[in-house]
Design a protein around this nucleic acid. Structure first.
Length: 288
DNA sequence: CCGGATCCCAGTATTACTTCA
DNA sequence: GGTGAAGTAATACTGGGATCC
């Protein structure tokens, strides 16, 4: 924080910080905290996360940071399915794809698409109207990108709203319902989570920009106010010093915060070195 | 403790679609 | 209106870390 020394010499300091209400991270169903992630704050509840600018004594700065724990999935279900088809099942495709260290890790998504087209009569018409012909017929196993139908996207979105991660059973069920492979469902959810995170990051960025602007303005205002108070204090000094001791109403705490105790101070207060003036207990005529 | 299986994430490639000159 | 380049969104893949068994 850019607090100038001059301000500190007065015993006052400007502090920039955030006050937030720590809250328990919400977990998707069947999930437990697994590993900490990056430092974040709860953007979802701006009311509990307000920027603050404080004016106080030196050393009275408070920073409070909320550490959000990223949630991963625990308690994996290891599903072992047996198949008897000549063509690989969706689970086979998924298992091949999900094991990057396997020798067959690079499995063409064109295969996935073809498998889906065979099994999905419902969306065939729509696809045929918007796509070029499949080149697999002439031996070119070109990678073709699946475009989900509106119905499929809607159902996936609906499912994502309920839980941003899926366990194996949910994935299987959803894949079956959508006529997609579990792998496709999984990839969709991964990408969806990534998009959500990206959006949230952008929102956070905008929010922080506004916070920064607000706090900069507030800082400027308080610095100005501080200067004015200091000027006022300086201007009032001669008059203050000319007043008879009997008319002063200074309490013991004022003596300490006034900064007059140190005799080597360069401030005008150093002129007042008479102990009886600042010690009401040694001077019965003092107002305190 | 080690290794395999599985999960998720970050990064990236690829394809489809849109915009605009 | 047709067209191609550029930009963007969507889908898929890869590699690595974490966790469980």
């Amino acid at each position: 924080m850019g607090v100038d020394n001059d301000a500190c010499n007065t015993g006052l300091v400007l502090g920039l910080g955030f006050s937030s209400t720590p809250e328990t991270p919400t977990m998707p169903n069947n999930q437990t905290p697994k590993k900490p992630s990056c430092l974040m704050f709860q953007q979802q509840q701006p009311s509990s996360f307000e920027p603050s600018l404080t004016l106080g004594l030196c050393g009275d700065q408070f920073y409070q940071v909320t550490k959000k724990v990223d949630v991963d999935k625990a308690g994996y279900l290891h599903l072992h399915l047996h198949h008897h088809d000549q063509e690989p099942t969706a689970v086979d495709l998924y298992r091949r794809q999900a094991s990057p260290h396997s020798a067959v890790s690079s499995f063409s998504s064109g295969r996935v698409k073809r498998e889906r087209e065979v099994s999905s009569e419902e969306v065939e018409v729509e696809k045929n109207s918007s796509r070029v012909s499949d080149e697999d017929e002439d031996g070119v196993n070109a990678r073709k990108k699946l475009r989900l139908t509106k119905q499929q996207s809607a159902l996936l979105e609906e499912s994502f709203k309920q839980h941003s991660t899926l366990n194996s059973k949910q994935k299987q069920a959803l894949a079956k319902q959508l006529n997609l492979t579990p792998r496709q469902v999984e990839v969709w959810f991964q990408n969806r989570r990534a998009r959500t995170k990206l959006k949230q990051t952008e929102v956070d960025c905008e929010f922080l920009k506004k916070c920064c602007e607000t706090l900069t303005d507030e800082n400027r205002r308080l610095q100005k106010e501080l200067q004015e108070l200091k000027a006022l204090k300086m201007a009032a000094q001669p008059f203050y010093m000319q007043m008879p001791a009997a008319t002063l109403t200074m309490c013991p705490s004022c003596e300490r915060t006034g900064g007059v105790a140190d005799g080597n101070s360069k401030s005008p207060f150093s002129m007042a070195t008479k102990p009886h003036f600042y010690n009401p207990f040694s001077n019965p005529s003092a107002a305190c």
